[in-house]
Design a binder for these strands. Structure first.
Length: 144
DNA sequence: CGCTTGACCGGAA
DNA sequence: ATTCCGGCCAAGC
């Protein structure tokens, strides 16, 4: 994983995020799971999340990337509470029709992106099936 | 250089 | 539900 790989990885992240339609959201982890592994990386190792990298990529995303449609696995905005960015993100999402509950959470079952269509995925060499399964994060747990 | 810091995440307690 | 922990990894200091 050298510098070039990293650039490629970031580019992939951006192109993926660009696929998220207006009015829907995705999560850092979901994007992270769709990134193709760099050639020499053993799958088990790669299977680990790269969510943090996605977050970092969003921090300095080009203006044509809808970074605001990426939130955390809890359905919440991840920027520091009360920060400028957090307010902007929420405002943009609400402008797209996304609803926040009183705890600042978005219902991922309702607004969560289902992933790029197979067509696009194939054309862009994305991971499929097991390793890239859409695996929507749950907000409900098994006990309640 | 080494050490700390996050727009993270899932599992365990 | 909430907290904690280990794993992640580029950036900043």
């Amino acid at each position: 994983m050298d510098q070039d790989d990293f650039r490629t990885l970031r580019t992939t992240v951006y192109s993926l995020v660009k696929q998220v339609p207006r009015g829907q959201v995705t999560t850092y982890g979901q994007i992270g799971r769709m990134i193709p592994p760099p050639g020499d990386t053993p799958p088990p190792l790669f299977a680990k999340q790269r969510a943090r990298l996605v977050g970092r990529a969003m921090r300095d995303a080009p203006s044509d990337v809808p970074w605001h449609r990426v939130i955390n696995s809890q359905g919440k905005i991840s920027l520091p509470l009360g920060s400028r960015g957090a307010a902007v993100q929420r405002k943009r999402l609400e402008a797209e029709g996304i609803i926040f509950d009183r705890f600042g959470r978005v219902d991922l079952d309702r607004f969560g992106w289902q992933g790029p269509d197979q067509q696009w995925g194939d054309a862009n060499g994305l991971l499929r099936s097991e390793s890239a399964e859409n695996h929507q994060p749950r907000q409900l747990d098994l006990f309640t």
